[in-house]
Design a binder for these strands. Structure first.
Lengths: 338, 338
DNA sequence: TAGTTAAATGAAAACGTTTTACATGTTAAT
DNA sequence: ATTAACATGTAAAACGTTTTCATTTAACTA
């Protein structure tokens, strides 16, 4: 609460403000004697340099903004935690932008960087929330940014994710290998890139196995538990019920399991259920959920790392970087009933 | 990326910078004619006012910092989401400070306000991370702040929480009513206020029922799933096994359940398990977890509301505000075995 | 010692706003 | 026509730093 400024400290220590500034940012430039003298005054006065003043001068805010759809989702929370840690050790603070999937919010948070409140953006949604001029080079118009998890449709953007197509394909192959022929997909919203990519993987796996695609078996959810339950309800209504259900998120898979079990089916004997994400609770439900593991720590870590690089002025090659996924076979999938 | 300043806009529109400033912050003071003129220039140039410059002048950063132990914990995530929403609509951004329980980090984030990067603090831990002079009035030395969930040992601080003592007492009473006599407690770390309060509630309930306190039945965990498993292991080793286990978090309760089930016990027939928090997944494990519901939305909402009030300069009565908890009886608790 | 160089410090401008105090122009009232 | 009152606009200072450039001081060298 003290209102001391650098000038006051300078006056107290009988030096110039410049010297005081250097004590913080370039102590090797100031002689031992004055260093001690100034340090003493600083300690005694409890002086705290005002970062806003510094920011104005240096044109760096020391903040980065992370734009995510929902912090309550364990996947996002895990990623954010990793980001926060690394940002912290690099001297950056992270502004949390929870958009609830709302475009207007995405814009708002993106504005933080155009307004100088943040130096870079970590974007976990599928569209660029900046007004850009399509006739100009895109990369030139963007602030330091990396797009995580989702896929923005441009190869000028730095992107980090799991290979959703391959991962979903692997997941479905697991079900096919177990003898399933009627494999349902519970997707995410169709404006979300990751969902579309997983759908592509699903199709591709079926195609490879010469299983005809039945669009009735693809139901659109929205990644959360309730929607899993709802979709399960629709699937059980079908004349030809699926023997396996591949859900594009663990939450939906958990919802599906809950619902089918409530209806008296047993998992995996009657119906196999598979998730995607490998959140903590996937192993804790009964039966434990077979799913695709996403390396949250690594995703978050790589995102922030690439952003920090850009902030340091280094060039970062645009394009996608894939991090390895891993199939986790647990109790919720089993051989197709005969 | 445009580097236009308010002066440039002023020049382009043939008015003074002051007028441009007013177009944003006090449009009613400027005539319709000039308003339009200036607005036009702003739109055409894509001018974005630099908030850092404004912050420096107004001495308001427009940020608040939320200091929490772990964003990955669903309780915290839920609270943060609520905070973020309301902060956003009030025009504030939230800086996320995930401390992992480290004091050093708490200090670091608290420093954001002493350094002018944030205007207020939302504190979800049990100690004040500011250097204060004990001989002076505490309230005077603190920035706008509200303490959520945990309890700082001072009645000069604005605090929001559930009445942990009463809630824990209610929980244990539920177990007692079911006929349990050997009731274990799986606590949180002993430097965490909420854990100590819950322990007090536990004791008080036993005392009311004339059940002697057996310290062997109190095991210290650290609120997460793994520690629940570990503690369960210790409890099952006891000569006189508990017939009910009250865990101070849902995560630990889930861990406990998982472990005792793995050992062949059935819940709740052999052992009742009870949690605290009512996270989403509490209803999704089998059996569904009996627990104490915490109103996350309300807690976060009230915290930010009280902080915003302070930021507006209004006086906020210090002291604790309790929000109502709710006992959720589900499948994991049942009558004591005979 | 004087001369040269290197190291340490200082003065002042700059960063981009907001806001106070004041000046101008306009309208209304006499 | 004169003045008062008001609406609108302006000039300039202030916010708290950093940093360039000039200057002083200290440290060597011959």
């Amino acid at each position: 609460m003290a209102a001391l400024g650098i000038k006051d400290i300078a006056a107290l220590a009988n030096v110039s403000p410049a010297t005081v500034s250097r004590v913080f940012s370039a102590p090797e430039m100031v002689s031992k004697k004055t260093l001690e003298k100034v340090q003493k005054v600083i300690d005694e006065s409890g002086y705290r340099p005002n970062r806003i003043g510094a920011s104005l001068r240096t044109r760096k805010s020391g903040n980065i903004v992370a734009i995510i759809p929902d912090i309550t989702n364990p996947v996002n929370a895990g990623i954010i935690r990793a980001i926060e840690q690394k940002a912290h050790t690099a001297g950056y603070s992270v502004l949390l932008g929870d958009t609830q999937g709302l475009h207007e919010r995405e814009q708002h948070y993106a504005d933080l960087v155009t307004h100088g409140q943040a130096d870079g953006v970590l974007l976990f949604c599928s569209s660029i929330p900046f007004k850009t001029d399509a006739t100009l080079n895109l990369a030139q118009q963007l602030p330091p940014m990396v797009n995580g998890n989702e896929k923005i449709d441009s190869d000028e953007v730095v992107q980090v994710a799991v290979d959703n197509v391959a991962a979903a394909k692997r997941a479905v192959k697991h079900l096919i290998d177990l003898g399933h022929k009627y494999i349902a997909a519970v997707t995410g919203p169709d404006d979300i890139a990751s969902s579309n990519e997983r759908l592509e993987g699903y199709r591709s796996a079926l195609e490879d196995a010469n299983i005809p695609l039945d669009s009735g078996l693809c139901i659109q959810g929205d990644y959360d538990v309730e929607s899993g339950m709802k979709c399960a309800g629709q699937l059980l209504l079908l004349r030809q019920r699926p023997t396996a259900i591949f859900c594009f998120s663990d939450d939906m898979a958990i919802g599906v399991m809950k619902f089918v079990q409530k209806q008296g089916f047993s998992v995996p004997e009657d119906i196999s259920v598979m998730g995607f994400d490998d959140i903590n609770y996937a192993q804790l439900v009964s039966p434990a959920l077979t799913t695709v593991h996403q390396p949250l720590e690594e995703i978050g870590g790589l995102c922030i790392e690439l952003l920090l690089k850009q902030l340091k002025g280094e060039y970062v090659e645009p394009g996608r970087r894939f991090l390895p996924f891993e199939l986790k076979v647990r109790g919720s999938t089993g051989p197709a009933p005969t």
